[in-house]
Design a protein around this nucleic acid. Structure first.
Lengths: 149, 149
DNA sequence: TATTGTTATACTCTATAACTATA
DNA sequence: TATAGTTATAGAGTATAACAATA
């Protein structure tokens, strides 16, 4: 049991506040964080199957189908048949999707830069130094060393 | 415009992945992160008014009314009349709410501790060192130095 | 008249269960 | 029979607009 002074106990409220910060930045007519993550993945890795996207984003298959449906209705992605497998569908980014992804990413990054500019150098350095470690933490649950998380 | 190599650009995907991590830890029969934040605040500051809770959590007043309604139906909080102001309602934690908050907090903290234990000392140190800076970043939008965010 | 809180309503997001089509 | 994807349905969560009660 966490006694209240473990690193995890101290990390938890900070993560909660960062989530709130992101939600707060979440302006209308842009994308949800999950939608952004999917578009970013499609942009980086190219077209992908619904099942693979669902697994990568830790979502269920129906959930991903619905998200892709919303994105397709918005003209940001399109479904194309998979030539390799008749059951499968490939989701790919449209030009509009790539464009909105770029603009939304810029908006978020600009806002974060503004907030970072209000901190002092020591704080900025500390955050910058911790980024790779935080990224590894975020993925620590992806590759369990032995068994369950 | 963020050129893609600003601190904010690098922070954004890491924050996105941390959000995904937290969602992943979000086990059934426990609390959402916002619900946890409200219960944590009530535990720390004592009973509070709906308006104040909404403001503190950056939620709307109707949104907070509905969240409190769900929490009350679950027996985690109770509404009591405000003796100072007939329009107002004070929300306070029940024993069950305090208990569930403690158990949920422990669950999250334990899981984070497990994930942290998979990193090396340098990563743990970097995260630990950056925590106060990250907390200040999360609150940087709360106190705008001049005008808008 | 302003403030506190609620109800009404709608939309996003996500989940489970049941289904279709292909392998 | 297993897998890929979808539809059906339900619930959490949050928002805006309209309303009631108190100050």
């Amino acid at each position: 049991m966490a006694a209240g002074n473990t690193p995890g106990s101290q990390l938890l409220p900070v993560l909660g506040e960062l989530v709130r910060l992101l939600r707060q930045l979440d302006v209308p007519d842009t994308l949800s964080l999950v939608a952004m993550a999917v578009l970013r993945r499609l942009d980086r890795d190219g077209a992908g199957r619904v099942t693979d996207l669902a697994r990568a984003e830790r979502a269920t298959q129906p959930g991903m189908t619905q998200l892709i449906g919303r994105l397709e209705r918005a003209g940001l992605v399109q479904r194309v048949p998979d030539p390799q497998d008749g059951r499968s569908v490939l989701v790919e980014l449209t030009a509009a999707g790539r464009d909105l992804l770029a603009r939304t990413t810029t908006h978020y990054a600009d806002t974060l830069d503004l907030l970072l500019s209000r901190l002092d150098d020591a704080d900025r350095d500390a955050i910058s130094t911790a980024l790779p470690a935080l990224a590894r933490l975020a993925h620590a649950a992806d590759h369990p060393p032995a068994g369950r998380v």
